[in-house]
Amino acid sequence: MTTLTDIARPRQSSTLAEAPVSLASDERPLAKRLGPGRRRQGAAALGPLVLLAAWVAGSASGVLDPRTLSAPWTVVTTTAELVADGRLQSNLAVSTQRAGLGLLLGILFGAALALVSGLSRVGESLVDGPVQIKRAIPSLALLPLLILWLGIGEPMKVITITLGVFVPIYIQTHSGLRGIESKYVELAQTVGLSRAAFVRKVILPGALPGFLLGLRFAVTAAWLSLVVVEQINSTSGIGYMMELARTYGQTDVIVVGLVLYGLLGLLSDGAVRLLQRRALSWQRTLNS
């Protein structure tokens, strides 16, 4: 097991300490211009609205062939019909359940492996190598093997999503664990914190930004994996609805499914970003 000092890698700060004060003051305006700053209300919706406007204009002018891409008003009508007969709700519920279960398992699995690898040299030797190998192999490339092992039922679909989720959770959480600044380690040793207290009060809060960043990647990976697995001999879900529409040449239903996937991804990413702002508010307090 590593000592408290081994958990964090010290960062070089002498260069910053020796920098002239005038340099720091000169760079402040540049940092304000180039920094992310605070986004205005509704700024995140600007891109999708521009895309929607281009879609409407292309359909109204005849540039977009309705056989190639259905018009927005056709998609709205088709959505209303799917809602009226209950198909949309039932397939959406199944897809959300699959993605949610795979995401939950992937988060638990990836976070557990990151803790084992990040808090122990032995654990890192045993865990990090296999995870990096899995990182180099796309989860979808494992589909033929998973189908042979598990068949084409729900376990195969959930495990495929889990495999796509746990890698970004592991990578970012492990990076957060190893990126704890050495001054916090020294402070913990000075006040005599036990290893358990050090992990609970320093390591886990310090790794939280990395975990939440990994969660953003993981949410996207969950929906990407879901798109594929639902089109493999499924009998329910948004992907099944789209595959069935492809068989009958129903472009409007396919577009409805694509819009749903896009909205689900956008909303889930927005939820994680909101969680980031709430959970990491202490960082802004320390930096101010």
Results as ranks from 00 to 15, higher is better:
L4N: 12
L4C: 11
R11A: 13
R11M: 15
Q12E: 15
S14W: 06
T15V: 15
A19S: 04
K32D: 12
R33Q: 15
L34T: 11
G35W: 05
R38K: 08
Q41M: 15
G42T: 02
L49T: 07
L51H: 14
L52E: 13
A54W: 13
G58W: 04
V63Q: 11
L64C: 10
R67H: 09
A71Q: 13
P72Q: 11
V76Y: 12
V76T: 04
T78G: 10
T79R: 10
S90G: 09
T96H: 10
L104F: 06
I107D: 15
L113Y: 07
A114S: 12
A114V: 13
V116N: 05
G118H: 04
G123A: 08
E124Q: 14
S125R: 14
V127T: 00
D128V: 10
D128P: 04
V131F: 11
R135A: 02
A136T: 04
S139E: 15
L140Q: 07
L143F: 05
L145D: 00
I147N: 00
L148D: 01
M156C: 00
V158G: 01
I161V: 06
I161F: 05
G164N: 00
P168C: 07
I169C: 01
T173C: 08
G179N: 07
S182E: 14
Y184I: 01
V185W: 06
V185P: 07
V185Q: 08
L193F: 03
A196W: 10
A197Y: 06
V199K: 10
K201E: 15
L204A: 10
P209L: 08
L212V: 04
L212H: 01
L213F: 10
G214H: 15
L215P: 05
A221V: 01
E230N: 14
Y240Q: 06
Y240C: 05
M241K: 13
A245F: 06
Y248Q: 11
G249P: 08
L258D: 01
L258N: 03
L264I: 00
R278D: 10
A279C: 13
L280C: 02
S281Q: 09
